[in-house]
Amino acid sequence: MPLIDSGKLVDDAWVRLGDDDALPAADVPVIVSLARFHKDRASLAGRNGGLGVWLASNQHPKDIADHLADFALVALDFPKFRDGRGFTIARELREHLGYRGVIRATGHTLPDQYLFLVRCGVTQVEIPEGRDPALWAHALTEIDTAYQVSVAGPLSMARLARHKTTEHAA
């Protein structure tokens, strides 16, 4: 899956492990489901590559609150672009749980949602195969005014109207 970070196409070093897949070499960063994380915590700990966890849109961030320090990446699934739970989950990870690692959106998203994702704290997006990455880059520049606080923006309502999104969209 092509990966977008800060509007640019980047290489993806992470491997998404199925629940029954064998573990790759210890320096390969892996993303596992929450179920596998709980099942294989011992063998997943102490790998050199990073550890990431994948949350379905009905899994709640409080389920991983106690383990956040273990994860260099949290992947959030968007089963359909219309399912907007991931926006609230990302914002919650940042705002309530203070998570500072990578948040990656996976599944079905549209470039038209990219700026919203970024403003909710998402850092990377796996885009569907065959889509033009330029649309994602462009999406960050389309609208540069925001009328509300967001976790990726100025952290106060001091000016309800008009934050420049470009100041913090990277």
Binding site: G84, T88, Q113, F116, A146, Y147, Q148, S150, L160
Partner: peptide, 11 residues
């Protein structure tokens, strides 16, 4: 103003 293109509540 607050609800206009709200990043979290548009879907």
């Amino acid at each position: 103003q607050w609800s206009t293109l709200h990043p979290e509540f548009s879907f």
